[in-house]
Design a protein around this nucleic acid. Structure first.
Ligand SMILES: [Mn+2]
Ligand SMILES: [Mn+2]
Ligand SMILES: [Zn+2]
Ligand SMILES: [Zn+2]
Lengths: 153, 153
DNA sequence: TTTAAAATGAGAATCATTTTCATTATTATA
DNA sequence: TATAATAATGAAAATGATTCTCATTTTAAA
């Protein structure tokens, strides 16, 4: 597929530079497919599946393969533009991580609503626990599963 | 398969009563296979896979089916004798939960070591966060992923 | 006993993800 | 530019953990 890339302001962003640098650093190539998937990723809000991204990317390029979406999400995750979020049922969603600050999630078991939160004290105690065991934390996973306000009614 | 069940002291435990009561409450039956899997489960320490339990159960009864192990672990989890633990790579392990108090995990990304911890303050702040959003927590998942003391050397 | 319901094990099905591989695209070099 | 080396792609197959199906067996109750 021959495709002329028109890099607009949106694409020439911090995020795009990070993505491009990551790819170049690994000696990989910035292909039209990767740029397309990157753009679709950036334009998607909230928490979404690979399948969702694949659908949106397919609308723009019906030739795109889902394997390429998986491969690109690995790259985006590796350079911290994307973060994985595991739902209580085990399904894997992605979200953008560059612009947002780190956060954890409340998930309603009834309606599936996802609420984000950030609690510095929890972070701090996690660090204390780790230090007390001689452990250094690379990352953590915290999800609170329950029922939301609306669903209680 | 006809099998005479010899219920020793170990089996006539609080755990066994809980398991039997749960089964009876649901109108289900206490079969030899379920008792066998229950015993294997009770005799297994640490964090272990369904496959591991299946292997141990197969040694005692080569006829046992892995589907029955999965089904029985569902029952043991439902009555809170077993807890699921999701490793950073997504694989699912079980552990006994009746005798131990609730705890969370540190996982070493290098050697796979699992360290358990309990931090009341973290619990407390989780509750506060939930309350502030009108949310009621049913359960939570917290795992800290990093590198352990030994692997730092 | 007889009967109805539940449980079992084997194997098929599922389903998200990964892998394979032949083909195509990109990049570096001459 | 032509050539060569390497990387990337998409289609399809493979994977692997879990669930489902179903014929058969077991259990508990009447
Ligand atoms: Mn989020
Ligand atoms: Mn544990
Ligand atoms: Zn809800
Ligand atoms: Zn270690």
């Amino acid at each position: 597929m021959k495709m002329i890339l028109i890099l607009n302001k949106k694409v020439m962003s911090l995020e795009f530079n990070r993505f491009r640098d990551h790819i170049k650093t690994l000696g990989l190539r910035l292909t039209p497919q990767r740029v397309l998937i990157f753009e679709v990723f950036l334009q998607t809000e909230g928490h979404f599946s690979v399948e969702k991204l694949f659908q949106k990317a397919s609308d723009l390029d019906p030739q795109i393969g889902i394997a390429t979406v998986y491969r690109t999400m690995k790259l985006l995750t590796a350079c911290s533009l994307a973060r994985e979020f595991i739902m209580p049922n085990g399904s894997i969603l992605f979200e953008k991580s560059s612009t947002q600050e780190q956060h954890d999630h409340l998930v309603c078991e009834v309606c599936g609503k996802i609420i984000e939160f950030e609690h510095p004290k929890i972070r701090q105690y996690q660090e204390e626990v780790a230090q007390s065991r001689g452990f250094s934390i690379y990352y953590h996973r915290l999800t609170l599963i329950g029922i939301c306000e609306d669903c209680k009614k």
